[in-house]
Simulated assay, not measured.
Amino acid sequence: MPATDLRFSGRIAGYGTTGGVRIVLGLWSTSPFGSFADAMIEDSRGKRLLLAPTQEIADFISTTYTFDDVEIGTVGWTRLPTGLRFVGGPLDTTLRIGGSSPLGRALRVVPKPVAVNPVWLQTIDPLARVLQPGARTAGSAGNGRREYYGVTGARRITAATASWSGADLGTLARLDPPVRFGFGSAPADPHLVDIVTTVRQPA
């Protein structure tokens, strides 16, 4: 029996705040669970939290990444003229999105069918680690599974505001140190990337 591939297509925003909180937003247009959003957060003390819209989605993500706490509730995002706003549980954050970054322009060279192919992503993973410290394109997803990050576009996050239960988390900062949810993080420079994530389950 062949392995089974689960594909998630959408965008990921990775950034930090001057208050020491690091945030990775998942904005998924298509997935085995339909369209949904989630947030992975690591605070200044290193506590890792997942915000997810359903228990089913939280269970899947938690078998792939590691968290100290999980919160289920209403999670969603809205497109704005200059960026996007994400609201989930106690987190309320607004991002201003700029133009394509040098990384994004470089990604255009690779045709999308190649850029999201797990064989290609496994091959370039060592190079990706060198060119974008903190980021990877292939690795373990736990329980005998493999995960592949196929990034097809990248734009800079140029400004951000964020609050937690109404308390200000500060303004935009680098995603540094890297978050510790799983095998891969995101570039230290705040980015919004177009991505196809493939989780390969063993036969």
Results as ranks from 00 to 15, higher is better:
19 G>Q: 04
201 Q>A: 12
16 G>T: 03
69 D>L: 06
170 G>M: 05
138 A>G: 06
9 S>D: 12
10 G>R: 02
165 S>L: 03
203 A>W: 07
187 P>G: 01
88 G>N: 09
202 P>L: 14
169 L>C: 01
70 V>W: 10
30 T>L: 02
191 H>V: 11
134 G>R: 04
41 I>W: 00
121 L>H: 08
198 T>C: 09
26 G>N: 10
2 P>L: 07
85 R>D: 04
130 V>Q: 14
196 V>L: 04
28 W>I: 10
47 K>E: 11
51 L>H: 04
134 G>W: 08
152 T>I: 09
55 Q>K: 09
72 I>N: 00
99 G>L: 09
171 T>E: 09
11 R>G: 11
124 I>G: 04
161 T>V: 00
167 A>Y: 00
76 G>T: 02
175 L>D: 03
202 P>R: 15
172 L>T: 00
113 P>A: 10
201 Q>S: 13
160 A>S: 09
128 A>I: 13
33 F>C: 01
143 N>C: 00
190 P>H: 00
91 L>S: 00
155 R>G: 08
162 A>E: 02
177 P>G: 07
34 G>P: 03
129 R>F: 09
170 G>H: 11
20 G>R: 03
97 I>G: 01
74 T>Y: 06
163 S>E: 11
124 I>Y: 04
89 G>M: 09
148 Y>E: 08
30 T>V: 09
194 D>Y: 11
176 D>Q: 13
25 L>E: 12
20 G>V: 02
4 T>M: 05
162 A>V: 05
104 G>E: 06
34 G>T: 05
4 T>P: 00
166 G>P: 05
59 D>S: 12
143 N>A: 15
109 V>M: 15
49 L>D: 01
116 V>H: 01
133 P>H: 02
89 G>T: 08
117 N>E: 10
155 R>H: 15
181 F>W: 14
134 G>F: 06
76 G>P: 02
2 P>N: 10
184 G>D: 15
81 P>I: 09
186 A>Q: 13
113 P>R: 08
98 G>M: 02
187 P>H: 06
